[in-house]
Structures are given as structure tokens and as C-alpha cells.
């Protein structure tokens, strides 16, 4: 494997991007899960698809844009989607979750139109939906690295505010923390992570990489920081193991990564159950 990575550029790109995504998706995912925003991640990934399909269509129809990396418009669409979700959530105060199906269907609707308009995109479509080991370019890798920089900086700078906001929004507001601003930034950073992770795990499975490792981590961790650490560990393991399997068996990495995370999750559940029953036996 190491040899193959050293030989092929595309594998270097995929593994480097995978290593980075394995950290940032679960890192942000912890906050998404505890704030019960998992479905928003799903909606945003579908909006990203619309942006990417739109970009491919533009590249075909406008000669000057032929070489445009579709990731840029994907990111733009995702960020715009996150802003719109916030708008809608405020508009439908008592039905906040309504924003999610609205944005999700808008994403799929535009995506379907652009996909049918952009001829030949169907061949790439599979890679965008389920991830790809071979399609990650050097430029994609740089974009993912830049996104990771933004995410890590954001978490480092606002860790304590994010924690308080996630745990108890009303208390955050009452303490005078700028919770609206931090939430707004959080949504934008989420949009960035989704667009960045999409290349490796695919649009349909991005949100799984943000939630499954966290679901496993919460079973065994004894603190919030511990949950973050375990999530990143599980996420990283799933991405790397998934990529290796995808390469050797010529499978879509989104599938292998997510199935690995599910296996991890099941093992953790079984393990934590047996530990719990054992400690209960000791106690009683």
C-alpha cells in the first residue's frame, strides 16, 4: 500500500485529503450532533451537489470557464444554502425544521436540472455521489487543506463559546456571548466542511462521516473533550481503512468508509454494553 501511495500521485492526493477530512468532519460533527443539526448537514450536501452540477454545466457552455474547478461553486452553493437555512428558520420560528426539507429539495431539484443539462456529467456523477479515490486533484487537495485551516482556527478561537452555545443556548445568550454571530460562523464552517469532504466520501454520505463517529464516541467517552478525541480517532480510522479497501477492491470510498464507521459503531455499542453490565454486576 505504502508503495502504491508513493508511486501514484492520485493516491497521494486521496490519502492526504482523506487524512484531513477524517479529522475535520468528525471534529465539527461533534457540535452538529449535540446541537441536533445532523439533518442540516444532509440538506447542505445536496445543495453542494446543485453547485457542482451547475459548475459543470457552465464549464461546458461557457468556453472561458472550461477549466473551472467545480468545487468552488459547490462551496459557494453550500455556504449560500446555510445562510438561507438560517433565514428560513427565523421566518418559520415555530417550524424551524421546515427549513431543512425546503433547502434539501431545492438542492436536489436544481441538481437534477443541471445534471440533465450537462451532457456527459453522468459518468462523473457516480464519483460525486459516492466519492472517488482517483478523482482527487492536487488543486482539490489544496482546497481541502485551506478549509481544514479555517475549521481548526474556528474551533480553537471559539471553543468555549461553541461549547456553551451547544450545551445551553439560553444561558449563552443570557451571559452576553455573541451567540448569533458564532452560530452564523458555525453554519458557514459547516458548509465548508461538507463541500470539502464531498470529494472523498461523496455527497450522499458526507453527513454520515460527521455523525457516525460521534455516535460511537458518545457511547464511551466520559467528557466533552473526550468525545471530540474519540470522534476524530474513529473518523480517521474509518476514512483510512475505507480508502484502502476502496483502492484494493475498486469500490466507491464513500461506501467503504461509511460501512467501516458503522462496523466501528456496532463494535463500540457491543463493547460499552458489556462494560456496563459488568460494572453493574460489580455494583449489585
Amino acid at each position: 500500500m505504502i508503495e502504491a501511495i508513493l508511486t501514484y500521485d492520485f493516491l497521494q492526493n486521496a490519502f492526504a485529503a482523506g487524512l484531513i477530512i477524517g479529522v475535520i468532519a468528525p471534529l465539527l460533527g461533534v457540535f452538529i450532533v449535540v446541537r441536533r443539526l445532523s439533518l442540516i448537514a444532509d440538506a447542505l450536501s445536496h445543495v453542494t451537489l446543485a453547485g457542482i452540477a451547475g459548475s459543470l454545466f457552465l464549464s461546458q457552455s461557457v468556453a472561458a470557464l472550461a477549466a473551472l474547478n467545480p468545487l468552488y461553486l459547490g462551496i459557494a452553493a453550500s455556504v449560500a444554502g446555510s445562510v438561507m437555512i438560517e433565514r428560513l428558520r427565523r421566518l418559520y420560528k415555530h417550524y424551524e425544521e421546515l427549513a431543512i426539507p425546503i433547502i434539501l429539495s431545492a438542492g436536489i431539484g436544481f441538481g437534477a436540472i443541471f445534471i440533465s443539462l450537462a451532457q456527459g456529467f453522468q459518468t462523473d456523477l457516480f464519483g460525486y455521489l459516492f466519492g472517488s479515490v482517483s478523482a482527487v486533484s492536487r488543486q482539490d487537495l489544496w482546497i481541502v487543506t485551506a478549509i481544514a485551516g479555517v475549521v481548526v482556527l474556528f474551533i480553537l478561537l471559539f471553543y468555549k463559546e461553541l461549547f456553551v452555545l451547544s450545551f445551553d443556548e439560553e444561558f449563552a445568550k443570557a451571559s452576553g456571548l455573541p451567540s448569533r454571530w458564532i452560530h452564523f460562523l458555525f453554519m458557514i464552517v459547516t458548509a465548508l466542511v461538507i463541500a470539502g469532504s464531498m470529494r472523498i466520501v461523496g455527497i450522499l454520505l458526507v453527513s454520515s462521516l460527521m455523525t457516525l463517529p460521534v455516535a460511537a464516541a458518545m457511547r464511551i467517552s466520559g467528557s466533552f473533550k473526550g468525545t471530540i478525541l474519540w470522534s476524530v480517532l474513529f473518523g480517521e480510522f474509518s476514512v483510512l481503512a475505507g480508502l484502502v479497501m476502496a483502492f484494493y477492491f475498486n469500490l466507491a470510498p464513500g461506501g467503504t468508509i461509511v460501512v467501516t464507521s458503522i462496523v466501528v459503531l456496532l463494535l463500540v455499542i457491543a463493547f460499552s454494553k458489556s462494560v456496563r453490565t459488568k460494572t453493574n454486576e460489580v455494583v449489585t
Binding site: 461549547f163 456553551v164 451571559s175 456571548l177 458518545m218
Partner: peptide, 22 residues
């Protein structure tokens, strides 16, 4: 009951420290 999610994976210490954020 209004504002706290009881499945939240945080320790007493982490929660109390949050009171110093501002």
C-alpha cells in the same frame, strides 16, 4: 427542562467552567 439536553456528553467540570466564558 427548557434548555438542557440531558444526553449531552459533558462533565460537571466542563459545564461549570462554561460559566466563565464571558
Amino acid at each position: 427542562a427548557n434548555s438542557f439536553n440531558s444526553g449531552f456528553p459533558a462533565t460537571v467540570e466542563e459545564v461549570v467552567k462554561g460559566g466563565l466564558a464571558k
